[in-house]
Deep mutational scan, measured.
Amino acid sequence: QTIHNGDQTYHYDNPEEAIKVAQKLAKIYNLTVTVKGNTVQVH
């Protein structure tokens, strides 16, 4: 599972963990989380 947060990319073995982290980032920075296959984008 990969999270793209602007210019930063994070890799997680656990998809659920990746989505949790993405949602935390989204709340902190007031962003949107988009899940596309194995990629979670925060923008």
Rank of each mutant, 00 (worst) to 15 (best):
T39F: 05
V40F: 01
N5C: 14
A18F: 03
P15M: 09
Y29F: 10
Y10P: 01
D13P: 09
D7R: 10
I19K: 12
Y12F: 15
N14K: 03
T34R: 02
P15A: 11
A22W: 07
Q8C: 15
D7Y: 15
K36V: 14
Q8I: 14
A18I: 02
D7I: 15
V42M: 02
T39R: 04
V35T: 02
P15T: 07
K36L: 12
L31W: 08
V33P: 00
T39C: 14
Q41G: 02
G37T: 01
V35N: 01
V33W: 00
K27R: 07
A18M: 02
A22C: 12
D13V: 06
N30T: 04
N30Y: 12
H4E: 10
A22N: 00
T39V: 11
V33I: 08
T9R: 05
T2R: 03
G37F: 04
V42F: 03
V21G: 08
T9Q: 07
L31S: 03
K36T: 10
A22E: 01
Q1Y: 06
D13Q: 09
E17I: 14
V42I: 12
G6A: 11
T39E: 05
V33R: 00
Q8F: 14
V35G: 00
T39L: 06
A22Y: 03
V21N: 08
I3M: 10
N38L: 04
G6C: 14
Y12N: 01
N38V: 05
N30L: 05
V42P: 01
V21D: 04
T34A: 03
K36R: 10
G6W: 14
A18L: 03
T39M: 09
Y12G: 01
T9F: 15
D7C: 15
I3P: 10
K20E: 10
I19F: 12
A22D: 00
A22S: 03
A22I: 04
K20W: 11
H11F: 12
T32I: 12
Y12H: 02
N38P: 03
N38S: 09
T39N: 05
I28L: 14
Y10Q: 02
N14Q: 04
N14H: 05
Q1K: 08
T34P: 00
Y12D: 01
I3V: 12
I3T: 11
T34E: 05
K24D: 13
D7A: 12
T2C: 13
H43V: 06
T32D: 05
E16T: 07
A26P: 02
Q1V: 13
T9D: 04
A18E: 01
Y12C: 15
T2E: 12
K27T: 14
T32R: 07
Q8V: 15
Y12V: 03
V33H: 00
L25T: 01
Q41Y: 15
Q23E: 14
P15L: 08
L25Y: 03
N5K: 12
N5M: 12
Y29Q: 09
V33F: 03
T39P: 00
I3S: 11
E16H: 07
T32P: 05
V40G: 00
K20N: 06
V40R: 00
T2M: 12
V42K: 01
T34L: 05
V21C: 14
K20D: 06
I28N: 09
K27C: 15
H4V: 11
H43D: 02
K24F: 15
K36P: 01
I19G: 05
K27S: 14
P15Q: 08
T2N: 11
T34G: 01
A18D: 01
E16L: 08
P15S: 06
K20P: 01
V42E: 00
E16Q: 07
T39Q: 06
I19A: 09
N5F: 13
D7F: 15
I28P: 02
H11E: 09
K27A: 15
V42G: 00
V35A: 03
L31E: 02
I19W: 14
K24P: 00
T32H: 10
Q1R: 02
P15W: 09
N38W: 02
G37P: 01
I28F: 13
V21W: 14
T32K: 10
N5A: 10
V21Y: 08
G6V: 12
T2G: 11
V40H: 00
A22Q: 02
V21R: 04
K27M: 15
Y10E: 02
Y29S: 07
N30K: 09
A26Q: 14
Q41H: 14
Q41V: 15
Y29T: 09
V33K: 00
Y10T: 03
V42Q: 01
Y12A: 04
T32E: 06
N30F: 10
A26L: 08
Q8W: 15
